[in-house]
């Protein structure tokens, strides 16, 4: 399996920085579980975070007092047992839902409870605590187009099984499509196998908050 469609730099940087909302982060982290190349890029982006931390202004007073406080706190705490050796990975199982997605659904792909969207397509909504995204798992029947799901903003689509074609591009397991509002696209599931993908879009609310953000400098807030 070779992944051909990877995470954009701006998603990686926001995820590394810890500023990416939960819904987008779920798609990013699930792609990372399947893509060693992007994990290497993530490590690089986190390295930038480490560099920025090192190069930040260190001329702050009060370190002596802080050190005394922390020294007392670690002396009082019972010695921590060495971190448990990481459990031997369970037998590799290709094709299942990877973490962290599987935990969000509470089950693996065979026992999901789908809700019909009509025309053979179905979905499962995945709740998150951010108010910025809508997250769902979509199942598109083999050979059929993805149902109309208008998105005014960004849309991330991560393929988990089967594949879909969008124009001349083919997206298979692990591939992520990053579409913005300007892209008109008509993904079609490849014949032969249903396509299951994770779709993350801007929540409708976001538009209002975007306008609010746009006028923030004028309001001076």
């Amino acid at each position: 399996m070779t992944i051909r469609h990877h995470l954009s730099d701006d998603l990686l940087v926001s995820y590394a920085a810890g500023s990416l909302a939960e819904g987008w982060s779920l798609a990013v982290a699930t792609h990372l579980a399947l893509c060693p190349a992007c994990r290497q890029r993530l490590a690089f982006a986190e390295g930038i975070g480490g560099e920025l931390l090192e190069s930040s202004d260190a001329a702050a007073p009060g370190t002596d007092a802080s050190w005394e406080a922390v020294r007392r706190r670690i002396a009082k705490s019972s010695p921590t047992p060495p971190s448990a050796a990481p459990a031997a990975p369970a037998a590799r199982r290709a094709g299942g839902l990877p973490e962290p997605l599987r935990s969000y659904l509470g089950r693996d792909v065979e026992t999901l409870r789908w809700r019909s969207l009509g025309r053979g397509a179905s979905q499962i909504r995945i709740p998150t605590a951010d108010n910025e995204t809508q997250v769902r798992l979509l199942r598109i029947p083999a050979g059929k187009p993805v149902p109309e799901h208008g998105h005014g903003g960004r849309e991330l689509t991560l393929v988990l099984s089967g594949s879909f074609a969008d124009g001349n591009d083919l997206f298979a397991r692990g591939d992520i499509e990053d579409a913005d509002a300007s892209l008109t696209h008509q993904p079609v599931a490849t014949p032969g196998e249903d396509c299951i993908c994770l779709a993350v879009t801007d929540a409708p609310l976001r538009f209002r908050s975007w306008i609010l953000r746009a006028i923030q400098p004028l309001l001076g807030i």
């Binding site: 939960e22 982290a29 579980a33 990975p89 369970a90 290709a94 962290p100």
Partner: peptide
């Protein structure tokens, strides 16, 4: 993130059977 954000930052798990190793 734990201190200031309501939502989570999900992470991959290298011990997950579906994880694709380097």
């Amino acid at each position: 993130i734990d201190a200031f954000r309501r939502d989570k930052r999900p992470e991959f798990d290298p011990n997950d059977p579906a994880f694709v190793p380097d």
